[in-house]
Amino acid sequence: MSSAELSKPGRKQRVRTLWISDVHLGTRDCQAEHLATFLKRYQADKVYLVGDIIDGWRLRSGVFWPQAHTNVIRRLLTMSKRGTEVIYVTGNHDEFLRGYSSLVLGNIQLVDEAEHRTADGRRLLVIHGDQFDVITCYHRWLAFLGDSAYELTLTLNRWLNHWRRRYGYGYWSLSAYLKQRVKRAVNFISDFEQAIAHECVKRGFDGVVCGHIHHAEMCRVGEVEYLNCGDWVESCTALIEHLDGSIQLYRLAEDQTRQQAELAALA
């Protein structure tokens, strides 16, 4: 059974909030089909798009926009039409939208950052996070260079998962695996977490929901609850707030493994 078949949704689950980031629509490595399937599973009061949803950097060098990418936009518009509040927080890859911050179109808002109150009263800063990345802020040429090297890794990732699907295996991220094991990447992630946590303390937030570094995480950094959505390019992850205010980190690979185990138990 293919990974797409494993992920077919049943009845929609009611949740309070969904957070997704770093979708990078307009790139070949965007996992748009998986994301559309994920979104179909939930009836959410709010959806936060935490930056880099559309990849303006890549679209400058040529347009790549298959039907699957349109399907994600249509799914979000459908959710908005049915009452879901959609808050689009701008990121560095979609920074062309920052000139239109505070735009409101029906149930869709465009902002540079937002404040979210959980059902149990926690006050969370929702921000993409590029503002706390020294390379992105002060060495943009290096960020573009790194983006090109990163694209090569993602190309390898795409071919690996093509063959995994052919042999009946679920999604697995080579790039996320390498990121966990390269010391410089680990140090960069740690520095990023510390910087954004410091900002939360300074501004009196209980925690932060961010993206940018494509590394999904739920942890405490000092006094701050640090929540990173991850991405839909490498690891296919999201954050889900349930009706009681508890927050869950969703990982596509873990979900597929669980579904395979359930199917095997029924066989």
Rank of each mutant, 00 (worst) to 15 (best):
L239C: 02
L227W: 05
W172Q: 11
C200N: 05
V221I: 12
Y169D: 08
R165F: 09
G211K: 00
L174Y: 10
L152I: 15
N187F: 09
R184T: 14
G170Q: 09
C210S: 10
C229G: 05
N187R: 14
E193L: 01
E225V: 05
S148F: 14
Q194I: 11
N187S: 12
R220Y: 13
E225I: 08
V208L: 02
F192H: 07
I213W: 01
G207K: 06
A149S: 12
K179T: 04
L156D: 10
E217R: 13
G245M: 09
N228T: 00
F192Y: 14
F188M: 13
G211E: 01
G168R: 04
D244W: 09
K179N: 10
Q194C: 06
I240F: 02
E217I: 09
A197K: 01
H214I: 06
R165G: 13
A238R: 00
I189H: 09
Y167R: 15
G230W: 01
N161G: 05
L156A: 13
K183Q: 14
W163Y: 15
I247N: 03
L178R: 03
F205N: 03
L174R: 05
Y150S: 05
C236D: 03
W232C: 00
H212V: 02
E199V: 10
C210P: 00
L239S: 01
L156R: 09
L249T: 03
A197W: 02
K179C: 06
G170R: 04
N157R: 04
A195Y: 08
Y150M: 07
A149G: 13
H162P: 00
N228S: 01
